[in-house]
Amino acid sequence: MPDMTLKPKTPLNGYSETFGATVLEEIAGMGLVSIATPRGGVDALQGAVQSAYGCALPPTGSSTIGNDGAIRLMGLQPGQVFALFAYDGDTAVTEIEKALGDNGYYTDQSDSWAMLHLSGSAAIDALARICPLDLDASVFPDGTVARTVMEHMGVIVLREGTDGFLLMAARSSAANFLHAVEQSVRNVT
């Protein structure tokens, strides 16, 4: 056996770029777990989430943050939430299982999504050119989450603060997605 170690690569290779007051950077080191509600089990799951994280199960289109601020739950569709938390290991599901027991069906999504964070003054203008959603703070306030399409790629958009957005797209087309967002930022800065 040759003596060598393989080093993992993140989907976008640690991309980080600044465009004036606007920053586009890859987010890595996150655990992402899909939690599906068993049929008729929404109350049990709600109770488990409440006692484990001290927050509610978010309705579709919104997100909630656990008491200690370490986990965010995003309501993506009826009967499904995604849990997002800082995690460097490779068994993110066990973290959720420890907290919620068998009150939900879990699948690990951590390595399937490329995550980009876009923030700064030009963020909204850049997204307005590729995102069909109205992202104005009056209808898409802090913590709002949505699934949509940008440049024909499925994207999860989460608003963080006044001009910050977390964008998640399929890892398989991560480079194309980065190109679309980066080009749009360049076009408005």
Partner: peptide, 10 residues
């Protein structure tokens, strides 16, 4: 009904 106005492309 749950999400508000969405583009037909979705």
């Amino acid at each position: 009904p749950l999400l508000g106005p969405r583009d037909a492309a979705e």
